[in-house]
Amino acid sequence: MQFTILCLERAEDFARRDNPATAGDYWAGWSAYGAALAQAGVFVSGAGLLPPGTAVTVRQTGDRRDVQDGPHADAKEQLGGFFVIDVPDMDAALDWAARAPSSGYGSTEVRPVLTMPG
């Protein structure tokens, strides 16, 4: 069964990515986590995302199109990246989610992947 692990980070966590004093630990933590997923044979796909400031959000309402700089919602924590994993059940997915570095400073959301009918 596939689950998506959504890694949510705060503005200061995104800032750690580019600060020479913190970038090493930041990236080492994520690359170790990704490697552990892959080596355990549960990794399906995944991607890290550039900070929310780089986002552009589009909304189409009838014939009116709205294009906005920034993420869709002004939340304290924003999506920093995601992994799709294949594990037997939600319990196993939560075990992996707890190991994501974001669980220790931001938060990590787990969602079952929708199986398309047919």
């Binding site: 080492a28 933590g29 170790a32 986590y33 990704g34 490697a35 997923l37 707890a98 190991r99 220790g104």
Partner: peptide, 8 residues
């Protein structure tokens, strides 16, 4: 590295 990746 593996241990680090498995740590919660």
């Amino acid at each position: 590295t593996r241990a680090i990746g498995l740590t919660a």
